[in-house]
Nucleic acid binder design. Structure first.
Lengths: 225, 225
DNA sequence: TGTATCGGATACGTCAATGTATCCGTTGTT
DNA sequence: AACAACGGATACATTGACGTATCCGATACA
């Protein structure tokens, strides 16, 4: 009940199952590709989970609540995931990928000779300050703190972003005089991420986005200039 | 069952109840002071909650689990708190107070003329890097993100620490050349807390305490020197 | 168009956790 | 020492969320 969003099926195609032993591949393009409908359902559940986790928190979110928000019943959930943790994990990977792409997009190709200020502005532009995402990310961080496996996943994603940042910040290394320990793109990237992580705490306590961007700029310039 | 810690009562004295209308104060020192036993029970429940929240997370911790860890039954809990949130709140206030005291203790009186490096070392010494506390604090931060009231509480506590830091950092303002926006004890304190908050994220992902202190020192020196 | 199969819905049993109502031992007072 | 009140334990009823077993409509392939 109270479902008003999807309710519109999709169009399957193939599945991941035990593979009915197709010795003679009928159509060369349907080996184990997951069904279309399935993909949509998964995606919708993940999106709904994002909203619910952001609003209620992981601890207080129930499977049913998420399904309701997505316009499905628990049957759909259990058909796609085996636990709430698994969904949470999938959600994190999905969004983290988006973030990485975004950062990569904005900082993509280094534009040769820029001033530090210009570089800082691009970096700030690239870093996310979306409150919902920050909240979900923070919950995930807490999970990582309790599971080496999850921590590894999160670290891996951070590394991707960090490396992108490092390439951009490589230029800064020569533009300004930095303490020895910070004289590398990698360590500068690590520093920028730390500052970002720190500033973001204030966002959770109510500071507005613009104010925070300004504060972030101040800090980064103080550090890098 | 499985209780092996307290189980030893305390000694009452008075209570907060509707006050039996004592018009003629019998003994001038027992107006509404909470019972001794009560205080101990509360304290033990709070300590147990700290351990349980740190290990299992707020979302997965049950009231019973905490009572068990404290050596009580749920009866004791409901006699002292009305919800898990309330206990969590009390726990936060308790620990936050300890932290504030500690920071105040270490940075208490400013020692006149120190080098920036010495000041930074004292600041680092003062800032907590206790993993359990960081985790509980992060959970609380997430609650604050969803409740203006809780956010206000947390901000208040941060302000206390920030002001202590500000007094200490007041000296730095003249010792080094900083960007205009950072030329005050208050903004420097805000910056130091941001860096601290940022570095602490790495701790949750597995970086060790010493490594982190070193990294924190690097960042603070780069910022302040 | 027929049909095997897939994806999600429905219905059910289970369990852990909650909150309350009540009881009993302990404590401080007279 | 007796007593009144307090603090915590015990017992109980309730509920909400979970996971599973099964069913039905939709879909792709022949």
């Amino acid at each position: 009940m109270t479902a008003e969003t999807p309710r519109t099926p999709g169009l399957p195609k193939a599945q991941v199952r035990p593979a009915p032993d197709r010795t003679s591949t009928p159509t060369p393009s349907k080996v184990d590709r997951p069904t279309r409908r399935r993909g949509r359902t998964r995606a919708r559940l993940i999106e709904a989970a994002f909203a619910v986790f952001a609003e209620r928190g992981f601890g207080r979110a129930s499977i049913e609540e998420i399904c309701e928000a997505a316009g499905y019943t628990r049957g759909a959930f259990y058909s796609n995931f085996s636990s709430l943790d698994e969904l949470f994990f999938a959600l994190y990977e999905h969004r983290a990928q988006l973030i990485a792409d975004q950062v990569g997009g904005v900082l993509g190709r280094v534009s040769g000779q820029d001033t530090v200020e210009v570089l800082v502005n691009r970096v700030i532009e690239a870093l996310t300050l979306d409150r919902d995402w920050i909240m979900v990310r923070t919950e995930f961080l807490l999970h990582a703190a309790r599971s080496a496996t999850i921590a590894a996943t999160m670290t891996a994603h951070r590394t991707v972003v960090q490396e992108t940042l490092a390439r951009t910040l490589q230029d800064v290394v020569d533009l300004t005089d930095l303490p020895p320990a910070l004289r590398s793109g990698a360590s500068l990237a690590r520093a920028v991420m730390a500052v970002h992580d720190g500033v973001v705490v204030e966002m959770l306590l109510g500071t507005g986005t613009e104010e925070l961007k300004s504060w972030l700029r101040t800090l980064l310039l103080a550090l890098l200039d």
